[in-house]
Simulated assay, not measured.
Amino acid sequence: MTSPDDFPLELDQQICFALYSTSLAMTKTYKPMLDKLGLTYPQYLAMLVLWESDNLTVKEIAARLSLDSATLTPLLKRLEAQGYVVRIRGVEDERQVHVRLTAQGRSLRQSARAIPPEIFCAAGSDVDELVRLRSDLVRLRASLNEYLER
Rank of each mutant, 00 (worst) to 15 (best):
T2E: 14
T2M: 15
P4E: 04
P4D: 14
P4L: 07
F7V: 14
P8R: 02
L9T: 13
E10C: 01
Q13C: 12
Q14D: 01
I15C: 10
L19R: 01
S21N: 00
T22K: 02
T22C: 14
L24F: 07
M26R: 00
M26V: 14
T29H: 02
Y30D: 03
Y30L: 02
Y30R: 05
P32W: 08
P32M: 03
M33E: 06
M33R: 02
L34N: 02
L34K: 03
K36T: 13
G38Y: 07
G38D: 10
G38M: 03
G38N: 08
Y41T: 06
Y41I: 08
Y41M: 04
P42S: 08
P42M: 07
P42I: 05
L45F: 07
A46V: 01
A46P: 02
L50C: 12
E52M: 01
S53K: 08
N55G: 05
N55E: 14
L56W: 02
L56Y: 01
L56P: 11
T57E: 08
V58L: 09
K59E: 10
K59D: 10
E60K: 05
R64C: 10
S66Q: 11
L67D: 06
T71S: 14
T73S: 01
L76Q: 05
K77I: 03
L79S: 03
A81C: 15
G83F: 00
V86G: 02
R87S: 06
G90M: 08
G90R: 08
E92T: 15
E94M: 12
R95S: 13
Q96D: 13
Q96S: 15
Q96I: 07
V97K: 05
R100D: 04
R100L: 02
L101N: 06
T102L: 06
T102P: 04
A103H: 08
A103E: 07
G105P: 07
G105T: 00
R106I: 06
S107A: 05
R109E: 09
R109N: 01
Q110C: 12
A112Y: 06
A112I: 00
A112G: 05
A114P: 09
I115S: 01
P117L: 01
P117A: 11
E118P: 10
E118L: 12
F120S: 03
F120E: 15
C121M: 14
C121L: 15
C121T: 15
E129T: 05
E129R: 09
V131F: 04
R132H: 13
L137M: 06
L137F: 00
L137N: 11
L140K: 11
L140T: 01
L144H: 12
N145Y: 09
N145I: 13
Y147W: 13
L148R: 10
R150H: 07
R150Q: 12
